[in-house]
Amino acid sequence: MDNASTLNKGQQVRRAANPLQAEGKPPMSNEHPYPEKTVGAPFVDDPKMRMRDVDVFYGDKQAIHGVSLDIGKNEVVALIGPSGCGKSTFLRSLNRMNDTIDICRVSGSLHLEEQDLYDPKMDVVELRARVGMVFQKPNPFPKSIYDNVAYGPRLHGLANKKYDLDEIVETSLRKAGLWEEVKDRLHQPGTGLSGGQQQRLCIARTIAVSPEVVLMDEPCSALDPIATAKIEELIAELSESYTIAIVTHSMQQAARVSQRTAYFHLGHLVEMNDTDTVFTKPQHSLTEAYITGRFG
């Protein structure tokens, strides 16, 4: 805990803004005090991404309150929590997708290895090439399957020859487990695929630019169980070469795919720990209440 003291100070100031009380609801019960700081082990040694005291505001409304956590190299981190608790907001601040929302403001320190994400000198294009994103709803471009995957490499000039581009497209589709299904119809529209295939196409599109981190915002929420299983399998495979942060609504999914899990509650990071620990021995009563299905 390198900067625990600053963390504490920050948390003290925010103490008054206990969201449960702020919303006029009584606390869950006496054993459910809102944590002053995240319980568990939000930090790791030599992390891929390091976030400290992250606040995110939409206009005057604060959506993320002083979240600090690390994402380790080649690990899958699951972000869980009731809907509206700020999981997407936090995830989107990791590759500055929030920049596209006028009223959104991010403060705190966010680093990808040694680089400050919000450094004015940081190039957003480069950042997004290094930190890719897969969205909740499959959103292939209304172009051919090939062009969907080739878009990123073309944008960043990763392949100068048609041959190289073909190779990137094939390997990306193979990694996304889609190659066998689409190799004969590469030049047909990507939007003609099924929902699960579309989402795998979006994953292929994201990994075609060889990002270091892949952010996934509920990638399976629009898919049927079989497609979901395929994507989960894929996440396990991808974690060998990529660092992954995945927001999920499903606790089973978090348990299946992730090594560590972070539980968000109304914009606060309540608890973060090894996935097993979070699901078997939650240390905070709010986490316990959530994973036992008492609210969500």
Binding site: V125, F141, P142
Partner: peptide, 27 residues
């Protein structure tokens, strides 16, 4: 033009101008 298309392009590192030229304009 669906915002999801803009997000997808932006998420791949397209600049606002590229998003407009490659995706918004054609659609």
């Amino acid at each position: 033009v669906p915002p999801s298309i803009r997000e997808a392009a932006m998420g791949l590192g397209a600049s606002p101008m590229q998003v407009v030229l490659h995706h918004v304009m054609p659609l």
